[in-house]
Every structure is written in structure tokens, then in C-alpha cells.
Simulated assay, not measured.
Amino acid sequence: MPSHLPLSWAFLLSATWSRTLPDKNELANACYFTYRVGYVICDASLGPEAAQKEMEAGRCNADFRLMGSDFQRLVLKHYMEGRPPLEEAMWLLTSSENFQTRTLSECPPMQILANMLYGEALLYLDGPSRDGESAMLVAQAIEQTKRVQPEVLNALARTWPLDMATHRFQDRHVF
């Protein structure tokens, strides 16, 4: 939908112009330019009900966002010999299963590369193993790529370092 229209026009068009999924170029652009993963951070010692009350009272940090464009920039920098964005990857990997599934459907490279980055980091801690956690994480990333429509994955692979991540892991995962 055109973003330059007034809000009332955008609402009217969205009500009359619908489709189930964006095309591959829209998904690739939205994943880079506008995608944000939001977190609400509360006291971890609280139970679910107490945490909900704290959120409703505004006593939790709801301002933390992980943006697709920032994550992409950090991952690209890493594969050009920068530090790996492991903190950002861990935010994605430690999210609930439904949160990860949603991220995978809305901005697949973020979830896939989070697995690849952490799997690569574990190689330095655990060493290469076909049954180790690093191999499991990379296998999960590869499985996730299979859930993405091939034409969408191809469009995203032109702007996200999916191939670089795979080659880097394979180069370092020697037996």
C-alpha cells in the first residue's frame, strides 16, 4: 500500500484492497527498512500474572526494539571481519516459540541468521561435532530456510548475508 497517502486514504485502501501475503520485493524491503521486533522487559523474578500487572501499570521497559536494518548492518559488518552481533541474536533465539515463528514469517533472515551466528560462536566453545549444539542450530537455520517461499528467500538472499553465513560455518566446521 502506498505510504505517501494520508492516513484516511491508507485506511480506506487497506479496507478495500487486501491480499494474504506481500510479494517478495515488498517483504524484502519491509524486512530491511521497517521491521522492528519489540520487547517488554520486566523483572524476571515475577510470575506471569505479576508481570502482566507491572506491564499494565507501565513499570516495565517497553522501549527496547531490535530493528531489521540494524541487525542486517551488524551481521554484514561481522562477515566483513567485525564482531558478531551475539546479543541481538540471543534476543531472537530466547524469545518464545510463537514469537520466533512470527519473526521467521515476517523477516526470515533475522531468525535464520540468529541461529547461524550462535552456531558459529559455539564452534569456538564446543569444537566441531556433528551432534553438537552448533550443528543443531545450523540445522535449525537450514530447516527454517525451507519454510520460506523460494522466490522470497532468493530476494532476501540478495540483501542479507545468508550464503556468507553458511560458507563461514562450513569453513570453520571441519572434522
Rank of each mutant, 00 (worst) to 15 (best):
residue 88 E to S: 07
residue 67 M to R: 11
residue 97 E to D: 12
residue 75 V to I: 12
residue 35 Y to L: 10
residue 71 F to K: 00
residue 97 E to I: 04
residue 56 E to K: 10
residue 86 L to M: 11
residue 46 L to Q: 14
residue 35 Y to Q: 05
residue 51 A to W: 04
residue 94 T to V: 01
residue 60 C to G: 05
residue 39 Y to S: 03
residue 63 D to Y: 06
residue 37 V to L: 13
residue 47 G to V: 11
residue 89 A to M: 09
residue 43 D to S: 14
residue 91 W to P: 00
residue 53 K to T: 09
residue 69 S to N: 13
residue 88 E to Y: 02
residue 35 Y to A: 05
residue 82 G to P: 07
residue 66 L to W: 01
residue 53 K to I: 01
residue 76 L to H: 14
residue 86 L to Q: 05
residue 25 N to Q: 14
residue 73 R to L: 06
residue 44 A to F: 07
residue 45 S to I: 07
residue 83 R to S: 14
residue 68 G to N: 02
residue 52 Q to V: 01
residue 74 L to G: 00
residue 66 L to G: 00
residue 82 G to C: 07
residue 55 M to G: 04
residue 32 Y to H: 12
residue 39 Y to N: 03
residue 77 K to N: 14
residue 98 N to A: 00
residue 43 D to K: 10
residue 43 D to H: 10
residue 24 K to N: 11
residue 77 K to P: 00
residue 50 A to D: 15
residue 60 C to P: 08
residue 48 P to F: 06
residue 83 R to E: 15
residue 91 W to L: 13
residue 49 E to T: 12
residue 55 M to Y: 06
residue 72 Q to Y: 04
residue 90 M to C: 04
residue 69 S to H: 13
residue 37 V to F: 05
residue 33 F to W: 11
residue 45 S to A: 15
residue 48 P to G: 04
residue 27 L to C: 04
residue 56 E to Y: 00
residue 30 A to E: 11
residue 43 D to A: 12
residue 99 F to H: 04
residue 31 C to Q: 01
residue 94 T to G: 06
residue 56 E to D: 15
residue 62 A to W: 01
residue 86 L to S: 06
residue 31 C to T: 14
residue 69 S to Y: 03
residue 100 Q to I: 04
residue 84 P to Y: 04
residue 47 G to K: 06
residue 48 P to S: 12
residue 94 T to Y: 10
residue 36 R to F: 06
residue 66 L to D: 01
residue 85 P to W: 05
residue 35 Y to W: 04
residue 32 Y to R: 10
residue 25 N to M: 12
residue 74 L to W: 02
residue 34 T to G: 10
residue 52 Q to M: 09
residue 42 C to R: 02
